[in-house]
Design a protein around this nucleic acid. Structure first.
Ligand SMILES: [Mn+2]
Ligand SMILES: [Mn+2]
Ligand SMILES: [Zn+2]
Ligand SMILES: [Zn+2]
Lengths: 151, 151
DNA sequence: GACCTAATCTGCAAATCATGCGAATAAGCA
DNA sequence: TGCTTATTCGCATGATTTGCAGATTAGGTC
């Protein structure tokens, strides 16, 4: 996703209005690597802008997605998560705390479908499930992230 | 998933009852490579057993999953799909018709996370999105599978 | 075969997540 | 300031899945 400033420009140039709700969401999403759900963004947004509607959060997220500024990902049937990282990347989901990390992958081109089933893949996505660095360290659990488990 | 006969044996040996509903679902799931949703199974089941409850379908699918006889998969936030294929495998989802095919993958072990982020993956799943063989053939579209798109 | 009882099935309420819709509101502009 | 129209908001509705409780039944006992 582009910077809030660039998004303001884009919205303006497309004749869309610059509302406080949109600006807040631009800033909450910018470089946000947490893959938040709509509800999570709503909670954060509400703290800064009491009265903002969950409906507006969904609306804005849908708009940004349709503009190609956001992508949506889901894991294991949980709620949709929003991802401002437009680079080609994959994900690592922690079984313990539910954290979702962006990962780059080496040798993805080596991966191929074994059987000659004539499927023409246009995209490939890889999801790792396992234990994240924080949850792996047996030290103090005091600073462990809260459980964001999808389901 | 094991054969209906073996499942009957397993259920019996665990003190579970062999009901017509369960037997029907055993047979509908056996070697079923369509990755059906609960609703889809309910529709098929209802044709053979009018009056069967959707709740029972869900219940049985949950039971089989907990017994390790079924696995559940979801794609793009759609409804949960049930998979009797217990072998380690991956999936190819057709963008056109929504068909989901099982695929085996070569060189998966070559795939690795680039950055040293200390994530310890316990499992890796790969999903291809693209066009299936049927949808790719420009011949008669009459025999194309119906659209089962997840969303 | 009749009887008993726990397991199962069923119908419906309710939870969760997401979208449709219309009325109220406010951004952008003359 | 006042107009126009996009946007926001609240609520209803839809889709999927689970909780619950009463009715039913499989499977054992006599
Ligand atoms: Mn990401
Ligand atoms: Mn499969
Ligand atoms: Zn973790
Ligand atoms: Zn297809």
């Amino acid at each position: 996703m582009r910077s809030p400033e660039q998004l303001v420009e884009r919205f303006r140039s497309e004749g869309l209005k610059i509302t406080p709700q949109r600006q807040l969401l631009f800033s909450l999403l910018h470089e946000n690597a947490e893959h938040p759900t709509a509800e999570a963004l709503y909670t954060t947004a509400s703290a800064q802008m009491p009265g903002i509607s969950l409906r507006t959060v969904y609306q804005t997220l849908t708009d940004l997605t349709e503009m190609g500024e956001l992508s949506q990902v889901t894991f294991d049937g949980g709620a949709v998560r929003f991802d401002p990282n437009l680079a080609d990347h994959h994900h690592a989901v922690c079984n313990e705390c539910g954290a979702i990390a962006d990962v780059s992958i080496d040798h993805l081109d080596a991966v191929s479908i074994s059987e000659p089933n004539h499927f023409s893949p246009s995209s490939t996505s890889v999801v790792f499930h396992g234990t994240c660095a924080r949850c792996a360290t047996p030290t103090s659990n005091l600073d462990k992230p809260t459980n964001n488990q999808t389901k």
